[in-house]
Amino acid sequence: MLKDGIMIDIRNVTKTYGIGGQTVKAVDKVSFAMGTGEIVSIIGHSGSGKTTLLSLVGGLTKPDSGSVVIDGKDIWSMDDDSLSELRNRKISFIFQFSSLVPTLTALENIMLPTTFGNYGKDVEGYARELLGLVGLADKADSYPSQLSGGQQRRVAVARAFINRPEVVLADEPTGDLDEETEREVIELFKRMNRERKTAFLLVTHSSELAGQAGRQLRMSSGSVLPFINTVSHRER
């Protein structure tokens, strides 16, 4: 069951790519909905369309057909500026790859999304708090090249919360992390979910992270297979 009403509603979304003269359906007539504050995980083999689905949900790419509705608005009926504002205010991404800007320090990377909108005065204070939450308080002035892969991932995780998003779209967010750091990140996700009702759509291979999800979507060849309810697992 969905919590508190629908926040994201994907209907019959299809996305195809032309690769080497062939058309590949990355996402094929996918429909699902997410409630406010819900945690949903997506699992599936490599190339099954998980990352493309995340980008469709986040408005990074336009579907060939179908609709993506966030907070009651079809995002592809918006103009580009409004869609950018929506991404800046309500959505955050954690990408699978290194996504830090190499010329900015860890602290500046975290603050970066706030330069695209009007945020409060104490952005830096909150950025430092987030840096502390991912255990990198002493790395504020370090550049990405001075950080390990895991540390970079943690900075990216911290950045995802600077805009106090309604939903975090995360692609393997704990991929580079050791077990202890993975647990800290999961704790951060749970805390944000609990305190701010932040929703999470997680692509993950981590059973521990997937275990936090109320529901699991399984993708295969661009299609979503029936839901698996994992609430009982989480409660257990």
Binding site: D80, D81, R87, F97, R159
Partner: peptide, 16 residues
């Protein structure tokens, strides 16, 4: 390109 795409993902408008 990737970095500019990331900025857009974070909410940077085309004008930015």
């Amino acid at each position: 390109q990737r970095e500019l795409g990331l900025l857009r993902a974070m909410g940077a408008k085309r004008g930015y």
